[in-house]
Computed example of a mutant assay.
Amino acid sequence: MIGNDIVDLQLAGIQSNWQRRGWLQKIFTLLEQKEIYNSSSPNLQVWKFWSMKEAAYKAHQRCFHHAPTFNPKKIECVSATSVCIEKYVYELATEFTKEYVYSIARSTGAYYYSEIFQAEINPREELKKLIRSSITKKDRLYFKKDINGIPNLYINGKCSKIPFSLTHHGDYSAYVMLS
């Protein structure tokens, strides 16, 4: 399975004061809090862990068709490249720039393709273009969320079961798809 999350660091700095009393304790485990406090860049570490947790949550929810119940303390970043949820471990790839933190969670060893965009570009349309390159031009593509809010791609009215994930925050968006 696959999941992704992006955090626009400028917007996160405006929208959330992670340093306020009790915020870290509600979101992060004791080990994660320790790593944040000991980090040379605590702000970046907070948003890296947040992005990793969100990406793993999306992959887990898609894999097990769970109803949306995001409880970040039950999702643990056990290393820089892995997250554990309910005894399931997801591999993580995280990249960061001055502008954003982007994480991709996947089942162990799964190959993927991903792209990041500025806000004016629609990642759904870009994903459709990518998929359209491998099917006929007549095929009708659209996205529809299931009862748990998980988006699925439909081709000619049938759910395609293509594993993908979409994310956006502030000035950035991205998609990831298993290859």
Rank of each mutant, 00 (worst) to 15 (best):
E125T: 08
N148P: 01
W47T: 02
I116W: 05
G170W: 02
V101H: 01
P72S: 09
W18C: 12
G13C: 08
N38F: 08
A12P: 10
Y113F: 14
E35H: 08
S160D: 09
C159K: 14
M1N: 08
E115I: 02
I85N: 03
G3A: 10
N43L: 02
R20G: 00
S51C: 08
D146R: 10
W18F: 14
T29M: 07
D5L: 02
A119N: 10
L24K: 14
K73Y: 09
R140Q: 13
G22M: 10
L11F: 04
T167D: 03
Y142E: 14
D8K: 04
G157H: 11
T29F: 06
H168S: 09
W47N: 04
Q15I: 00
T136R: 13
L11A: 10
F64M: 09
L30T: 13
L130R: 13
F49R: 01
K145N: 15
Y37Q: 13
E54Q: 12
K138H: 10
N156A: 09
K53S: 02
I2Y: 06
K58M: 08
Q33G: 07
K144M: 14
T81Q: 13
A67Y: 15
Y112H: 10
K98G: 01
N148R: 03
K73Q: 12
I155Q: 07
R106M: 06
I121V: 15
S107T: 12
A174G: 03
G170M: 01
Y175E: 00
L31Q: 15
E91Y: 02
P151C: 06
Y111Q: 13
R62Y: 13
P123R: 05
T94F: 00
K145V: 06
N4L: 05
L141Q: 09
K48E: 12
A12S: 15
F64P: 01
F28W: 09
F70Q: 06
F143A: 11
L127R: 01
G13E: 10
L178W: 01
S134C: 12
W18T: 10
